[in-house]
Simulated assay, not measured.
Amino acid sequence: MAKRAVHRRARKILGEEPVALVWCEIRTRIPTPPKDVHRAAGKGRLKPGHHWLLYVGAVVFFFVVIPMMLIDKLSDPFDWPRRSRRDRRPRAAEPDNRRQDPTNGVFDGDWNLTAGQLLLHWYGHSPNPKRLVMLGRDRVCIATSPRRRLSPTKADDFRTVAEFPLDQAHVEGEAGQPRGFATFRLRFADGSWLEVGRLAEPEDADHFLRTVSA
């Protein structure tokens, strides 16, 4: 469960004890918006930032792992022709589910409505993918930390980046979802919606889903 510092910060932001809160993320990449829409929104980033260790790992992979793989392949001259012939065999076409759903199941698809506009500025507020959704008695707040890395149990520097009264936004979710696959939707008054998942802290997630499904 989130530490006392997280709840203390949430209470300070809301001015009351939160009804429920949970850290969450967009489950997959943000779809690519039309260029004119992206430009009108300030051309903000559409991908999260990465920790420096990821770049170190990439460098090691390209300069150490790949050369070793090539050396291993070239070390057997008799096996190389067989591999080449096998690689030239036609492969069965694989279905591309992303073409069937250009939104990736992230939102309703209209960039001009509330959910789309929220996505256009999602990573502009913070390169970190985690967002804290807090439920008050009369509003829904979305907060984030400016840091690239944070611990969902200890973060205490997050700030509100979006706030909606309950007549403009509400949360839809089901209790008892399998751990690791649980999701919920933020649905807005204009009919748009945004789906998030990767819910952190099991106790917070279970309480949050029970609250919104009641």
Rank of each mutant, 00 (worst) to 15 (best):
M1F: 03
A2C: 06
K3A: 08
R8L: 01
G15E: 10
G15P: 09
E17M: 06
P18S: 04
V19H: 03
I26L: 12
R29P: 04
I30Q: 09
P34K: 02
K35W: 15
V37L: 14
V37E: 13
G42P: 05
G44F: 14
G49H: 02
H50T: 05
H50Y: 00
W52R: 12
L54P: 01
L54C: 15
Y55H: 13
V56L: 15
V56P: 05
V56S: 10
F61C: 10
F63A: 08
V64P: 07
V65S: 08
V65D: 01
I66M: 15
I66E: 10
I66Q: 12
P67N: 14
I71T: 08
I71D: 11
L74T: 07
S75H: 02
D76H: 02
F78V: 15
D79T: 11
R82Q: 07
S84K: 04
R85G: 00
R86V: 00
R89K: 12
P90T: 04
P90H: 10
R91D: 09
D96H: 08
N97E: 02
N97Y: 09
T103R: 03
N104A: 00
G109E: 03
D110R: 00
A115G: 01
A115Y: 03
G116V: 00
L119S: 03
L120I: 09
W122K: 05
Y123H: 08
G124V: 06
G124Q: 09
P127L: 09
N128E: 00
K130P: 01
K130T: 07
V133G: 08
V133N: 04
M134C: 07
G136Q: 03
R139T: 13
A143F: 13
T144K: 01
L150F: 09
P152C: 07
P152E: 12
K154N: 14
F158H: 09
F158S: 01
R159F: 14
V161D: 11
A162H: 14
A162V: 12
Q168P: 14
V171W: 01
E172N: 03
E172K: 14
G173F: 10
G173C: 08
P178N: 05
G180M: 15
F181S: 14
A182L: 13
T183P: 05
F184T: 01
R185M: 07
R187P: 05
R187F: 06
A189C: 10
D190T: 10
G191A: 02
V196Y: 02
V196N: 06
V196K: 01
A200D: 13
E201V: 10
E201G: 05
H207C: 09
T211A: 06
V212G: 03
S213F: 02
A214G: 14
A214C: 07
